[in-house]
Design a protein around this nucleic acid. Structure first.
Length: 834
RNA sequence: GCUCCAGUGGCGGAAUCGGUAGACGCGUCGGACUUAAAAUCCGAUCGGGGCUCAACCUCGGUGCCAGUUCAAGUCUGGCCUGGAGCACCA
């Protein structure tokens, strides 16, 4: 065995062996229990970054650990390979997005293999391949049949730079999630998925996910945004046309209904023209035109002063018999609730600001039980805290929480209102005016209207005869062969849908395809999917907390309702890894603080990269990259290698199991115990939230312990060699999920059969997983005063006796009364004196 | 504004149940080996005070203020700071 550690040599060698022997292939049928470990699949952007390295290393170590523990582990990988960057690159270089994507996949595949990841490559998928997107299209058709996919004209988010619409979830602070340019509103006819049908169950089922972090669950809950309130319908008393009209509002504060002094409708409100008097028409029109021009960011900015104009008409408040004026103001949102808001300026801060500006009346209807609030004209802001009702007729004196129910109930009884649960979540807009995506499989027949493409005609292939140099429209529209087709119903002329699907659809079901990746008859076999799913451990970035994870949960539920699978949630446990930082900020090309994984592989080897990326922080926290840290890990692997190689002649792999009491010498017994302590600690740390940072510190402790032991043994005898072999083999096995190449090479060099990665995980003996004596901590009045080495078999009375014998305790208790003595078995004695 | 997460040495971080605060590493300092360097190895490293120095002794210390307890980094209440998410959502 070579004395020096040459990672580059070792790593290449074993990667080749593993590939040739199919070391990581997963059979579908096995006697072992299944375990599905999954990383969020990458977009093939060109090269791996350190975030990928962290993500895939974490999942790989989990997969290997579970395999060693006796599970049949599914650990697949694939490519989220549709999307804009490929198309943009194609436009820039005149290349084909497919060629660009394939090249990137090839390069990144090479890098993944260099990292020594234990993937079953036979299950690899790429969402841009017809054999995959055929099924994406097929699934769309199933949702269409179920009424979950529909087309409608709507105000949608439009990104000019990307030349396409975006889903709500893809607009971040009014800007495009991908290119950061300001999003505009457009009115277009687009395809939507009815995720709102599942709003309630998506919220409720978060409770079925104890293996998810609270941060992700609350983010989803906030996004879904469930609220309870009431709908009130207010009759219009002076509609210009004379017709009978009413304006419904949604409110979460029905208790304040007696305090309404005006009502606001959104500028886009559908009946706004019919509610405007001829005298106010010009002003209202001007206001609406201005609102249309404004960007989302401007419009939604909360610190903008509120503006609005009166419509000239009035509604009746059936609770009071009073009438109040109608206004339009852009602080009312057309998409939420009914698009109209009842305004109670005394008890809503936004209404308060608006009423102050336009001098609208204020009427107090809630006050604290124990004091008066005075004239609302003198207030700084609205009163929004709980209280009792005033100026509210029969409800005066009622607690406002109770009044919410009572008042709504009255509106129900009298037929102008109802209880209402409202969600913030909107339907998922999936049309994209882009080329590099899965074509939406529908056609528009001149006679029969919208028709789904028959399943036996799938996939609707992306046309290749397109011009990528076009500006301002999707390249797909330039294909001379794609657009015209025949109607599947009447056989007449029809045109194809030119839009493609949001790539988040492709990634909403890929984890299902891995269960049956090569099936060309079905999207997946139901039994196989039911066997492998749900994913036991999903690992990925927090940036997908809403987008991908919410969409995937929706897909799973929708496909369950289509009868394609039998479970409710796709991901049982979720680990959201932190970001990889350098110098305190996220690694990014624009900041120029990136570290290229290739360089690390080349200079230190993949084992060092794997060890380091797990070492310094727990997986869920951000990880600060430091060059010194990499160096430190490299040194540690050298130290481990040296320990093995310099002792190679003394180590035997064929040693009997050592039991408690087998070893005569104390230092040997101590080392044996430390090995068991390490096995226990490492196993628990991995099992308990994958605390790899402490796992690695325990590798170091065990290594240090073996070195320390060795320093006392210039000429080891048979028992010494036995325990040395035992300790070193244990270290290798414990390190094998992380330092995958080093341990494999050492195993082989020491004459091991097969692969170390097929060895069983070590078990510890509870009797040995503790040191031979314990340190008794002696406290006086809760402060540590002494530490005494004692035999662990001591009874509580004996412990107390030992503690009282301590010189230090004697000094402190002399002349005082011992009030109480607390004894914690095997640990501590606390003496309370006065 | 609402919601969630976090706050421990010079730094990353450790500390099953409330029971030795600072594991392990990085950095720094000192030393061994060497002609020298690299590599390697050994030692020190929370702060204040006491003793001529050391061992040692002693006091304080986990963002702040209270509380519960024999005992609080850990539990409870109230704040402060940082990060993330949502946000004119009625």
């Amino acid at each position: 065995m070579k004395e020096a550690y040459f990672p580059q040599e070792i790593e290449k060698k074993w990667q080749k062996v593993w590939e040739e022997t199919g070391a990581f292939k997963t059979p579908d049928d096995s006697d072992k229990p299944k375990y599905y470990a999954l990383s969020m699949f990458p977009y093939p952007s060109g090269k791996l970054h350190m975030g990928h390295v962290r993500n895939y290393t974490i999942t790989d170590v989990i997969a290997r650990f579970k395999k060693a523990q006796g599970f049949n582990v599914l650990h697949p990988i694939g490519w989220d390979s549709f999307g804009l960057p490929a198309e943009n690159a194609a436009m820039k270089h005149g290349a084909n997005p497919e060629a660009w994507t394939d090249e990137n996949i090839a390069y990144m595949t090479k890098q993944l293999k260099m990292l020594g990841l234990s993937y079953d490559w036979d299950r690899e998928v790429a969402t841009c391949k017809p054999e995959y997107y055929k099924w994406t299209q097929w699934l769309f058709l199933q949702l269409y049949k179920k009424g979950l996919a529909y087309k409608k004209e709507a105000a949608v988010n439009w990104c000019n730079d990307c030349g396409t619409v975006l889903a709500n979830e893809q607009v971040i602070d009014g800007k495009c999630w991908r290119c950061d340019s300001v999003v505009e509103k457009k009115y277009l006819s687009q395809w939507f998925l009815k995720i709102t049908d599942y709003a309630d169950v998506l919220l409720q089922d978060l409770d079925k996910l104890p293996g998810w972090g609270d941060n992700v669950k609350t983010m989803q809950a906030n996004w879904i945004g469930k609220s309870h309130g009431a709908i009130f319908r207010f009759p219009v008393v002076d509609a210009p046309s004379g017709e009978k009209m009413e304006v419904p509002v949604y409110t979460t504060r029905p208790d304040t209904v007696h305090g309404i002094t005006y009502l606001v409708v959104a500028p886009e409100y559908k009946d706004i023209e019919k509610l405007t008097t001829p005298e106010n028409k010009d002003a209202v029109e001007a206001y609406r035109a201005n609102a249309r021009k404004m960007s989302e960011i401007e419009r939604l900015s909360t610190d903008r002063t509120k503006t609005g104009v009166p419509l000239g008409t009035h509604c009746l408040n059936p609770f009071t018999g009073e009438t109040f004026p109608l206004w339009t103001a852009d602080y009312a949102l057309v998409e939420y609730g009914t698009g109209a808001v009842m305004a109670v300026p005394t008890h809503d801060t936004r209404d308060f600001a608006f009423a102050k500006k336009y001098n609208l009346p204020l009427k107090t209807v809630i006050k604290p039980a124990d004091k008066d609030l005075g004239d609302p004209q003198t207030w700084e802001d609205a009163y929004v805290d709980p209280g009792v009702l005033v100026n509210s007729g029969e409800f005066d004196g009622m607690d406002n929480e109770k009044a919410k129910k009572a008042i709504t109930q009255k509106s129900v009884d009298e037929g102008f209102g109802e209880f209402k649960t409202q969600f913030r979540l909107r339907d998922w807009l999936i049309s994209r005016q882009r080329y590099w995506g899965a074509p939406i499989p529908v056609v528009y027949c001149d006679k029969c209207g919208i028709q789904p493409v028959p399943e036996d005609q799938l996939p609707v292939m992306l046309p290749k005869d397109v011009d990528f140099s076009v500006v301002g429209k999707s390249p797909i529209t330039t294909s001379p062969t794609f657009k015209d087709t025949v109607c599947p119903v009447c056989g007449g002329h029809a045109t194809r849908e030119m839009d493609t699907m949001d790539t988040f659809i492709c990634s909403s079901w890929y984890y299902l395809r891995y269960a049956d990746a090569r099936n060309d008859k079905e999207c997946f076999n139901k039994d196989k999917v039911n066997h492998w799913l749900p994913v036991d451990q999903y690992v990925g970035g927090i940036e997908h907390a809403i987008l991908h994870l919410l969409y995937s949960r929706f897909f799973t539920k929708a496909l369950r309702d289509c009868g394609l699978l039998d479970f409710d949630e796709p991901f049982k446990n979720l680990l959201t890894q932190g970001m990889v930082l350098k110098d305190g900020s996220k690694m990014s090309k624009s900041k120029g603080n990136t570290v290229d994984p290739d360089e690390i592989f080349e200079n230190y080897g993949a084992d060092t990269a794997r060890l380091f990326i797990l070492s310094d922080s727990p997986p869920a926290r951000d990880f600060d990259w430091s060059d010194a840290g990499v160096e430190g890990c490299y040194k540690f692997l050298n130290r481990v290698w040296r320990l093995i190689s310099t002792n190679a002649d003394k180590i035997s792999l064929n040693i009997p199991e050592i039991k408690a009491g087998d070893l005569k010498k104390k230092e040997n017994d101590d080392l044996l115990r430390f090995v068991h302590i390490s096995i226990k600690g490492i196993t628990n740390d991995i099992s308990n939230d994958f605390q790899f940072n402490t796992v690695i510190s325990k590798y170091r402790e065990l290594t240090n312990a073996i070195y320390d032991w060795q320093a006392k043994k210039p000429s080891p005898d048979e028992e010494d060699k036995l325990i040395l072999s035992y300790a070193i083999v244990a270290l290798m096995k414990l390190m094998s999920p992380v330092a995958v190449h080093l341990t494999e090479e050492a195993w082989h060099e020491l004459g091991g059969e097969g692969s170390i990665h097929n060895q069983e995980w070590l078990k510890w003996d509870e009797n040995l997983a503790k040191s031979s004596s314990i340190t008794l901590v002696v406290q006086v009045n809760g402060k540590v005063k002494d530490k005494i080495e004692v035999d662990e078999g001591l009874s509580q009375d004996e412990m107390k006796e030992v503690a009282l014998q301590s010189e230090k305790v004697k000094a402190l208790t002399e002349g005082k009364t011992i009030v109480k003595t607390i004894v914690v078995p095997k640990k501590l004695v606390n003496i309370v004196v006065k």
